Simulated scan of single mutants.
Amino acid sequence: MTTGLDSTRAGTATEDTQASSFGSSVYGGRPTFAIARREGSNGGEVTLYELLPENQAAARRERLERRGYSLNVESFEEIFAETSAEEATRWDWESWTAVKIARIDGGRFRALSPLIQETIDGADLDATKVTTSGASDIFLPEAIGVRLALAFRGIKPLQRVDRMRALCRGIARMGDEECYYWHAKCRSPSSPNGEKALRTLLTDHL
C-alpha cells in the first residue's frame, strides 16, 4: 500500500494490508493518522491529522504551493506533547509531522460522530476517547484514517444536517479501495474539484 497516496495507484490496497492493523509495512506498522479531541468554545472539537515524516510533508506542501494551495503542517510534538496514548511512546516520532486535515465541532461533529464510532470500533479501538467529553487522542491505521479523512473533508462546508448525514452514510458504505480512490482525488492539486464531486455524488439527491 502506498502510504503517501501520491502514486497513481492510490486507489488500490495491497492484499496483505488489513484495516485493523496499524499503518503499513513501509513504516514498521506505526499508525499514520490520529484524531485529537479538545474542548473548544463550542464544546468538544475533533481534529484529524495525517502523520508524515518531515521530508514527505515538505514535498507535499511544495507541490501544493506550486498550484496555489497551502498545507497546515505542525511538528508531532506540538500536537501530541501531552498525549497519554500508548502509540506516542511505542514509536520514535522525532522528525515526524502532523498534517492537519480538518477540525470539526458543533453540529458537524454530532453528524459525524456515528461514522467515527462505527469506523473506529471496526478497528477494535475505543472510539469513546474522542466522541465523549474531555481531551484525548486516538491513533489510527491508514485505512481507517483514509475513510475518516473523506468525511472530515467532505462535511466541512455543508450547512444542512440531512446532507451531512447522507455524506456520512455514503462514506460508511464505501469499500476500502473506493475510499482510497476518493481520498487521492480530494487531496490532489491536479483535481481541485475532488471534494465537491464527492459531496455531489453522496448528497445531490437531497
Rank of each mutant, 00 (worst) to 15 (best):
G4L: 11
L5Y: 04
D6N: 10
S7M: 01
D16I: 09
S25K: 14
V26P: 10
G28F: 09
F33G: 03
A34N: 07
I35D: 05
I35T: 12
A36E: 11
R37S: 10
S41Y: 08
N42K: 13
L51T: 01
L52G: 04
Q56E: 13
Q56H: 12
A57H: 06
R61V: 10
L64S: 05
R67F: 15
E74A: 14
E77N: 12
I79A: 07
I79C: 11
E82G: 15
E82C: 14
E86R: 14
E94S: 12
T97L: 05
A98I: 00
K100M: 08
D105E: 03
G106E: 11
R108S: 04
R110H: 14
R110E: 12
L112R: 12
P114V: 01
L115H: 12
L115E: 03
T119K: 04
T119L: 02
I120A: 07
G122P: 07
L125M: 15
L125I: 14
D126H: 14
V130Q: 06
T131K: 03
T132V: 11
G134K: 13
I138K: 03
I138C: 00
A143G: 15
R147S: 04
A149R: 05
L150Q: 03
K156Q: 14
P157Q: 09
P157F: 02
Q159H: 15
M164W: 10
C168T: 04
A172W: 02
R173M: 01
M174C: 00
D176V: 02
E177M: 02
E178Q: 00
K185C: 10
K185T: 15
R187P: 08
N193T: 15
L201I: 06
L201K: 15
L202G: 00
H205I: 12
L206E: 11
L206A: 05
